[in-house]
Design a protein around this nucleic acid. Structure first.
Length: 821
DNA sequence: TTGCCACAAATTTTT
DNA sequence: TTTGTGGCAA
């Protein structure tokens, strides 16, 4: 089963260390001799025609539309190998930018086997952020930054913004820090500083003030946020006056950008500038897989590339080697309704393979049990856990799935979610470390000045900030001043002095101790470890464990740095982990990966379970944006998810889903209707059938049942062939895919049953809409309020829905008071 | 100043 | 549902 779709022998498994993902190589030795020009580079595996062209086109701009599973990574790595081996391009003049650290690590691993470790080390490979950090460390002065500037992550940024709002006397209720930040980030992603901020909306004036203040505070703290990392470098390379900037732009003979559809304006301008000397810019991407618009990615970069580079060579990779024909067809069915696409058509020569399985389930628990059954079946067939994957749209869905897997004793790993480095105790320790490294960082001081509790209260802290603000000094240096000023009482003064002494001793220790030793001293001397131990609780112990793990990651980092011939420094380590994500650290351990669809980008699995295929959840809907734009991106997201699967794909949805304590009735996702009928097989679980029976037959006179789907779903309804549902007797009609085999019991299930019984092959007509004919967006009518639109679906025996009535506002109404409108 | 309690809110995706 | 926040008493 596996070989059929195997592209090429698996790349040697290079385990990136969990804490410190591989970044870009060590600085290039200026005197490195040019590599010997080897015999013309011939890739071991054969390339198809377009792939080969993309590898060998070496002069001038190039854009490659690489469909899902079309061998994109192979093209990029071979292209680089070809440049170095056949064209004699010096490795350190090649810059390859990827989207994730993981992708960079994989590319590096593959190149090592093609080029050898030495030459690979000299290449510039990394994410935009990783690469720009390196530039920025070199040219920090141009950006007005100190040498050991720190990177503020989301939480830090939020803390800064909270203070800004407070100090500007703004009401936190009216102006949410996160929203102000979101707006500012949008500005920054489009390379607009406060001076270019256009004041249009009513709140814009205030936001501009916040923006200015925020920027100023970051600068004062010698800190940058994620956008700054790129912006500072952009300013440098676009500065014609700067010799450093000109040098940077002249330095690269070839620039390659992977996942180009997900670049934002700043990133695009960056690569334009960095490649302007030779114009050897190669961008690779797929507009159908653009899923990061919400964080500034501009799909026009890829769609409009040729208007900026009219002479660019355009190559399309349209043959999919990864997935079965049925899966490719399903993916095409989902993406085809998309409005604006670059013309291209994915195809495959692979066998049809199994049909895409669609399972209708009763509840999210039932759904989870279904997934568990499927997973177990694959494992019994001999699949390795790492070849399987469970996807969901939002993290909130993961808990129920986790419980189900744990209940059945299946090993799993959540990818993404709460990052290890986001845990409170780890962040505390990090704050100490960063403060020692960079005493100007006030957010870090405020985070830990009273952690563990050392009797420095809010009042004292406020005074401290006042003093710091007045004197225009950092909060740390303000501590002695505050003590001298006599405005605080003796107790507070003692506490402050003790803290200042602690800080001084740690600063002194930094001179001699490495990062690891320093971290340990912090835990001991600050009383943090003692404090946790004294709590004597499960949580406290878990936190101690996490901190131990953190120390372990420091060990690993030090080891790695030393073996690479570099001195481990705190600055370097801190930058690494701020830019690391858990997706980078998908471990080699045999566990079933579970992740959001976003986290799945760029990965592939033998068998995939997509869950929560329901209107409102996938596609996920927010009210504040136009629906069309949202659905377009959700559609691409579904396309990405489907194309991750090589051999088997299962999609599930639940008739009722309890999320955030509220039960909701969801209609099946519109994407299910877009799947070609001849590539799919539909089933429902026993529980689901019970549910539909208890709600009466599909022909009951509940309002809306017939009309609603007609409204939303395409006329080519995949479900509506008019056949009445017929449940087969348990045990008899088990679909061929489910092996008749006893499954262990979860607590929720009453009695042992054969796995096959869960699935009853049948047509779903009527099941999905018999209970809640209303879908999100359904038009309804109320006697008093007139016509309205359903914005939320409620549950219960007498279902209640939330309806927006023009002129009346949003009301919660029992379904029985509404008629179709 | 701390720690507890009650209440409210907010729930996407991440370098 | 969980998580965070604010007020209050000790």
């Amino acid at each position: 089963m596996t070989e059929q779709f195997e592209l090429f022998p698996a790349a040697p498994a290079l385990a990136p260390s969990p804490a410190a993902p591989t970044l870009v190589p060590s600085p290039v030795p200026a005197l490195a001799p040019p590599p010997p020009i080897a015999a013309r580079f011939e890739p071991a595996a054969s390339l198809n025609q377009p792939q080969s062209e993309a590898v060998r086109h070496v002069d001038g701009p190039l854009i490659v539309f690489a469909g899902a599973g079309s061998g994109k990574t192979r093209v990029i790595t071979y292209r680089i190998a070809n440049l170095v081996m056949s064209e004699g391009v010096r490795p350190w003049t090649i810059l390859a930018v990827t989207f994730t650290n993981k992708a960079a690590g994989e590319m590096r691993a593959r190149l090592e086997s093609l080029l050898g470790a030495e030459r690979t080390k000299q290449l510039w490979i990394g994410t935009f952020h990783a690469v720009c950090i390196r530039f920025l460390r070199q040219h920090h002065a141009h950006a007005g930054l100190g040498k050991s500037f720190v990177i503020y992550d989301d939480a830090d940024q939020k803390a800064v913004m909270k203070r800004v709002l407070k100090d500007l006397g703004l009401d936190e209720k009216r102006l949410v820090p996160q929203q102000v930040l979101a707006r500012i980030h949008r500005e920054k992603q489009e390379a607009r500083g406060p001076d270019a901020f256009s004041v249009d909306g009513p709140l814009d004036g205030v936001i501009l003030r916040c923006y200015k203040e925020y920027e100023q505070r970051l600068r004062a703290a010698n800190a940058v946020d994620f956008e700054d990392i790129l912006l500072h470098v952009l300013r440098l390379v676009e500065d014609e006056q700067s010799a450093e900037g000109r040098e940077l732009c002249a330095r690269f003979e070839h620039v390659l950008v992977d996942e180009f559809q997900d670049t934002n304006l700043v990133q695009y301008r960056l690569v334009r500038a960095l490649s302007r000397a030779r114009r050897n810019l190669c961008v690779v991407g797929d507009d159908d897989q653009s899923i990061y618009r919400w964080r500034g990615a501009d799909i026009r970069n890829i769609r409009g590339f040729r208007s900026d580079y009219p002479d660019a060579r355009l190559i399309k990779l349209e043959e999919n080697y990864r997935s079965s024909a049925n899966i490719v067809k399903a993916a095409l069915g989902v993406i085809r309704p998309s409005r604006e696409r670059q013309p291209k058509e994915l195809f495959t020569l692979n066998a049809a393979g199994a049909e895409v399985l669609i399972v209708h389930t009763a509840t999210e628990r039932d759904e989870a049990a279904t997934v568990v059954d499927g997973l177990r079946r694959k494992l019994d067939e001999g699949a390795s856990p790492r070849e399987l994957a469970v996807f969901y749209r939002v993290h909130a869905q993961s808990r129920v799935l986790e419980e189900a897997l744990r209940g059945e004793g299946l090993p799993y790993q959540i990818v993404g979610g709460l990052r290890f480095f986001d845990r409170a105790e780890v962040k505390d320790l990090l704050a100490y470390l960063r403060l020692v490294e960079n005493p100007a960082s006030d957010v870090d001081l405020l985070r830990i000045i009273n952690v563990p509790p050392r009797k420095i209260g809010d009042v004292t802290i406020e005074r401290l900030i006042d003093v710091a603000g007045h004197e225009r000094i950092s909060a740390v240096t303000a501590i002695p001043k505050l003590c001298e000023s006599g405005t605080v009482n003796a107790g507070a003064r003692r506490a402050l002095t003790a803290f200042a002494e602690l800080f001084a001793s740690l600063t002194a220790a930094k001179e001699t101790a490495g990062p690891r030793e320093l971290a340990e001293r912090i835990l001991d001397d600050s009383g943090y470890a003692t404090w946790l131990r004294a709590q004597d609780s499960v949580e406290g112990d878990a936190r101690l464990d996490n901190l131990r793990e953190f120390l372990g990651s420091l060990d690993e980092y030090e080891e790695e740095a030393l073996s690479g011939g570099m001195t481990p420094t705190l600055t370097d380590y801190l930058a690494r982990i701020t830019l690391a994500s858990d997706t980078d650290t998908l471990s080699e351990v045999a566990r079933i990966p579970m992740m959001t669809v976003h986290a799945a980008k760029g990965l592939e699995f033998e068998a995939v379970w997509m869950t929560g295929l329901e209107e409102g959840l996938f596609p996920l809907m927010r009210e504040d944006q136009s629906e069309d734009d949202q659905v377009e991106e959700e559609r691409r997201l579904a396309y990405v998810a489907i194309t991750r699967a090589k051999v088997e794909l299962t999609m599930t949805y639940a008739a009722t889903r309890t999320i955030y304590g509220r039960m909701r009735y969801n209609a099946p996702s519109r994407f299910l209707f877009d799947l070609p009928t001849d590539t799919q097989r539909r089933t429902a679980t026993e529980a689901c059938l019970d549910l539909s029976r208890s709600y009466g037959s599909p022909s009951s006179e509940r309002p809306f049942r017939a009309s609603t789907f007609g409204e939303r779903a395409p006329s080519r309804s995949a479900f509506g062939n008019g056949e009445r549902p017929v449940a087969r007797a348990p045990g008899r009609g088990a679909p061929s895919q489910t092996s008749p085999r006893a499954a262990p019991l979860g607590v929720a299930r009453p009695a042992p049953r054969a796995v096959g019984e869960r699935f009853v092959e049948r047509d779903l007509d009527g099941v999905h809409d018999s209970d809640a004919g209303v879908v999100l967006g359904s038009r309804v009518r109320h006697k008093k309020f007139g016509p309205g639109v359903v914005v939320e679906l409620g549950g219960g025996a007498d279902p209640t829905v939330t309806v927006k009535f023009p002129g009346w506002g949003v009301k919660q109404i029992k379904l029985s008071f509404l008629t179709p409108g």
